[in-house]
Simulated assay, not measured.
Amino acid sequence: MNVEGLRYAQAVSQTKSFSAAARAYGVTQPALSNGVARLEDELGIKLFDRSPRGVMPTAHGTRILPMIDQALGLLDAVVSESRRLAVVRSGAVRMGVSPLIGSELVACAFEAARGLPRPRDLVLREADLDALGEALRAGELDVLLVPAVLPLPSFRRRSISSEPVVVINSAAPGDGTPLELEAAAAADYILVPDTCGLTKFTTQLFSGNDLPLRRYPGEAASFRVQEEWARMGVGAALLPRSKVTGDASCRPLVRAGVSVRISYEAVWARDTPLTAELEEFADALAACRE
């Protein structure tokens, strides 16, 4: 049975249109229509009826199309798992990293992987937290290195390191003196999209201490823009120390005199074949940062 015909039928079922399915699949409409027709001939049943209201499954199609979805899902899982196992055999560990992770921590990860009893290479993928989580669940990544801001009860996790948080605010002295969190709450904060973990950390920090988070009505696209706008006086910026350029004046954020820090952790699936090695990797990475 031709897999392409199954995918064509799935696309028609999802879009309820042969032309829309052809566009979504990146083929001409005649090619898609012919593929579906060949599949129907092979199955001996008609899957779709066309009408002025669009394309609808036939009675037989209503039974068969969900089975086609299941079959293609299993086939995709076979391909994904085969690729994952091939990477495991190659000796590489696929690690996803948040944009918030600094270069020093990534360098420590390479050192930790190469120091395992069976030395490993790292294959890195940087992406937003949602995309990294999906890739880990799909078996496309072996381990994540991310800010410790998400509840992940179904995964194994290991605290790796932390770093101080600083505030940049041109309306207040930038002489390096500590700034108490309660006093920091008086500023309007420029935030970035809630994808890398920094905005979630900031929100949790203020709400966890029963303080209001005053938000600048706009939004910066990156840490660099966040810092530049804060230095221009648009608002204040709260950043991990490693994300601040060397010439930027900033103040360490403290709570009752104790440094406020953002934590990072390694996260991996409980049922991965690399469980033992990832435990060792996480331990080595944590020790590297101590």
Rank of each mutant, 00 (worst) to 15 (best):
T203L: 15
L205D: 11
Q204Y: 08
N169I: 00
T195D: 13
A172V: 07
V167E: 07
L181F: 09
L181Q: 05
T199E: 12
G176Y: 01
A187Y: 02
L211V: 03
F206S: 11
G176P: 00
P173R: 11
P178G: 11
A186S: 14
N169K: 00
S170V: 04
I168H: 00
K200M: 14
N209W: 10
I190Q: 06
A172F: 05
L198H: 12
Y189V: 04
L211G: 05
D175I: 01
L191C: 09
S207T: 12
C196Q: 12
G176A: 01
L181W: 06
T199P: 00
I168E: 03
A186L: 07
L205M: 15
N209M: 05
D210E: 12
A184Q: 07
F206L: 13
A183I: 02
A172Q: 07
S170H: 06
L179C: 02
N209R: 14
T202V: 15
I168K: 03
L198N: 10
A183K: 09
E180A: 12
A187P: 03
P178A: 09
G174N: 09
T195N: 14
P212K: 06
D175K: 01
A187D: 14
P193E: 14
A172D: 09
L198C: 10
P178L: 06
G174D: 09
P178M: 06
L181Y: 07
G197H: 00
L179K: 02
P193Q: 14
T203V: 15
A186M: 06
A186H: 09
F206G: 13
L179S: 01
N209K: 11
E180Q: 14
F201W: 14
G174Q: 12
I190M: 08
V167T: 05
L198S: 10
Q204P: 10
Q204N: 15
P212M: 08
P212Q: 10
G174L: 08
A185T: 02
I168Q: 02
F201A: 10
T199G: 04
L205I: 13
K200N: 13
T203A: 15
L198M: 15
Y189H: 04
T195F: 10
Y189S: 00
D194N: 13
Q204A: 15
A171E: 11
T202L: 12
P193I: 10
E182C: 02
N209A: 11
P193W: 08
T177P: 00
L179E: 08
P212V: 10
L211P: 03
Q204T: 13
P178V: 07
G197D: 04
T195C: 11
